[in-house]
Amino acid sequence: MEAVYEVPPLTCKNCLKALPWEICNTPDLTKCPHCNVSILAVVFPAMFRPAGAGKIGETILTDQEAGCFYHPTKKAVVACSNCGRFLCSLCDIDFGGQHICSLCIAAGQKNRNFKNLDNRRVLYDDLALALAIIPLITVYFTLITAPIALYVAIRGWKAPLSIIPRTKFRFILAIVIALFEIAGWVVLIGIVFFRFGRGSF
């Protein structure tokens, strides 16, 4: 029997009206029939794919069957690849080809064990470089920011950088600039100190 399901239409983001299917997957820009704005709409088979039914986990029928760690009355179907706990089909999370439980996912995200769960990163190299360069606009602030830049660069040296691979060049540049600034202040303070010390004033 032919199955029929409803597919919500694409909507023009300008006039928020539904777009007819015939203007999708055209080789070039077309016009929205309602507001006449130029659009390009590309649809893929996932658009028409029905949403899969969620798994609920089978109930244990006999004492011989192993139960899920989180749902003792549900039948265990797989072991967590990370912690080894038995999982029912509800708790089993297919993550990158592995079967992982929700606690391991949460812990992995917190400890940055799973790269694909990393949604936010602080770029210590950019921070150190900004602290080293920006205060040069008014030189006086470098007295405070240069040591901070040096600290941030050293502290963040081993921290994971951007997901897009990059070298440590920014760290090195920040350290060099900060050291020059610190050296400049040391020289300046030394000159002032020696002048006062020798009673020149």
């Binding site: 893929f44 658009m47 990393d118 949604n119 936010r120 990163r121 602080v122 770029l123 951007s162 997901i163």
Partner: peptide
């Protein structure tokens, strides 16, 4: 100095 990431898996892209 903060990056935020959003991933869209190719199997899930509808349009």
């Amino acid at each position: 100095y903060v990056e935020e990431y959003r991933r869209f898996y190719l199997t899930d892209v509808q349009s």
